[in-house]
Design a protein around this nucleic acid. Sequence first.
RNA 1: GGGCGCUUAGCUCAGUUGGUUCAGAGCACUUGGUUUACACCCAAGGGGUCGGGGGUUCGAAUCCCUCAGCGCCCACCA
Length: 873
Amino acid sequence: MGIAKIYDPLIIEDKWLVKWEKEGFFKSDPNEKTPYTILIPPPNVTGILHMGHMLNNSIQDILIRKARLSGYNACWVPGTDHASIATEAKVVNKLKEIGIKKHELNRDEFLQHAWDWTNKHGGIILNQLKKIGCSCDWSKTKFTLDQDMYESVQSMFMKLHKDGYLYRDKKIVNWDPEAKTTLSNEEVIYKEKSAKLFYLKYKIESSEEFISVATTRPETIFGDTAVAVNPADKRYKKLIGKKLVVPIVNRAVPIVGDNSVESEFGTGCLKVTPAHSEKDFEIGLRNNLDIIDIFNDDATLNDHGLHYKTLDRFSVRKKITNELEEKGLLDRVEDYTHNIALSERTSCVVEPKLSTQWFVKMKELSKPALELVLNGDIQFYPKKYVKTYKNWLENIRDWNISRQLYWGHRIPVFYLKKDRSKYVVCLSNPEAIKLFEEKYYIKNLKSDEIFQDEDVLDTWFSSWLWPISVFDGIRNPNNADINYYYPTSDLVTGPDIIFFWVARMIISGNYLRKDIPFRNVYFTGLVRDKKGKKMSKQLGNSPDPEILIKKYGADAVRVGLLFCAPAGNDLLFDETLCNQGKNFSNKIWNAYRLVDGLKVDDSQQNQSHNEFAVKWFDENLKKKVISINESFKNFRISEALMTLYKLFWDDFCSIYLEIIKPEYGKNISKDLKHSTLIFLEKLLTLLHPFMPFISSEISDQILSNNFNISKSNWPKSEKIDNAIVQDFNYSIEIVSKIRHLKKENNISFKDDLKIYHENDLKKDQISVIYKLTNCSLVREKLKNIDSKTSFIAGKFSYVVDKKNKIFNELDTDKLKEELNYNLGFKTILEKKLSNENFISNAPKEVIDNERKKLDDVNSKIKILEEGIKNKTS
RNA sequence: GGGCGCUUAGCUCAGUUGGUUCAGAGCACUUGGUUUACACCCAAGGGGUCGGGGGUUCGAAUCCCUCAGCGCCCACCA
């Protein structure tokens, strides 16, 4: 044979990558066909591919390739995200390595570095996606900081402002002291940590008495402007209105009553630091308290920190505890476990901070978004996420969109230098001057009298426009692309960004276009290692997809991942699954080797078992197609793959090919070869979405070597002839039983067996049994034989005889066991059928079915009893 | 604290509206096999009282209650 015995994916995959790229194979333009559109969840522009991407994008590729084969105009738009905070943090670190600090650079200088970094690393991940076979329309590649995307974001900001959905407010926000920016609530993660609860002694003013106040953060006493107690708390009621002296700071602060204080916690007294806690801030508002901000942007103490000025909050905590202890102002310390807030990106402890930011009013804006999911216009797979989504939307809070970063979309707002409360929303300085005149009647402003907001927008503020902005539907809401491709079909993403992204796209889609952004959302699980740990760089338990691909081939890794990825569940990835994928590739390859090498003899007549096998496989294929299509409909991709895996390996290779395979040196008929090639080609079409490389390669070879075979499309579900499938399955069942018997009785598989059966097996069924078991079948003899034992296989009973050998070796106990089981079954059925409640309550089909079962069981029992009688006599 | 979900073979998971042909699949395992596509293979087989207990029902892996264990999301207290 001219074809290599072992499949080598590397050469073939490279070949197809080049070919696809060169021919612009996946390009899509609006046409008369129905569109099927997927937008990639844009990965970080400077990121590299990890197993999560691999899973996610393999699924998208499967869907898009299947749609393409099904005749849709399939369009998969790729792109990358500027990922403002993550990328900026990376650039800051890189600069630090070469001795440059961010604050030494101005915005433009910093951005130059950031762009250098982006240009150097951007696009790596897109190339990696190509390598795993992603069939994106690469000509449509977008980057969220592209000029057109930038303008879309700006125009969205202006529209929201115009419609009254934006406001600027001073609130306690989540501050990341490392990145020196605010974060949205969604970017904060909480982790349980053990800490200490310090009881500090606050002296009652003009008294020698002390009150003990519990806190986890003694370093914030510099910002204390009150101590609050619950007004119902009898212990402290009389103290409300009096003053306490903050230890070390020696500032007298009032004792206020506030219902939010829980008497049971600590001593029932709460130190109030309005600048550094949301709750304290609210108490401050209610009680008209001063606000003292004690931190610099990097969470070191400022002038208010007295002798701790410039020191970091955590070191101050240690030092001040010592000082308090020395001065006798520390009452006691307890162990305490609580949740601390961490920045999702930098992992540093988030500092609540009072600052002025832009917010999006979410409540009204998001209202329709809930309905669109609840009424099924948008479907979630798996369904359980609908509840998560509902829960979030019902408790939605306003969205802080300002980020104190350089890398991102600049906020299009201009302020008056003299009076920062006056601002206008627009794109440029000259426009701003004009607007100031219109809005505030300020004339003849010079351009240096105004300045643009220093902040950029939250990354997700551009991401939530992705489905519309990639088709330029914000600047040009009626262009041909957006009208054709929007709404998109399916979104494939992780449940971790259901709020960040999925929900917000639904919100913006409805706001901008009064339409859904996508019809289905498929949530993939997280990729974990086989011990169940989440894969991450830090843990070092995440394999590098590129290495896996080198080792097993891209097809094999894709398939390996999908073997363990049931819809919506986390998947426990084990490299051995890639090996299974590789074995599968090799199996496919060798099936092709066999089929390709089949020699044809024109004069050859088709044998009955071959004809039967062809008929069966044709029907069986249709049957499996129904099942695969059904799985796809429900986004059960793993299930579809498994059906296909078994169809190819078991049905096609182990059964069909074994039947039609001629004896050594013999030929097959022309028709049979033709049918077989067609089957293989159809199977490759089904395999194509999962394993694009090997399927393309073999398909290509088949089509170029056989002019009478044409490329098939993705098959539709068709009616099947069940009788053929059933007849065939009986034969296979009998074959299996015969093999079992041979093995149990230590009969070589090469040896002949004689099978006599009393039921009417059809000729071609017998032929198949003969072919697969190497036994002589003498049907007629059944009448003459003095049958000594019987055997049950499915519906059939038959006698097995190997020169009268099996007879004697067959175990009577086995038959008795079988008999007992059936007698028990019979009793249950009879009991059930004589139960009036059952007869009157159960549906007719169920009852009929039970009656049929009883008939079957009775005939089996008869055969078994005869068998035992014959054996013992 | 609020919400969601999970517990089925050694492992990872299917089991739609309750109906003993639903107790399943893949992998792993055991045994036997290979000059004739593939040992990256073929064949046969052994594994589970469906987390525990209770209930509804003629009938429960499936519905209800309860206990135990695990996971996730949201909110967050000094």
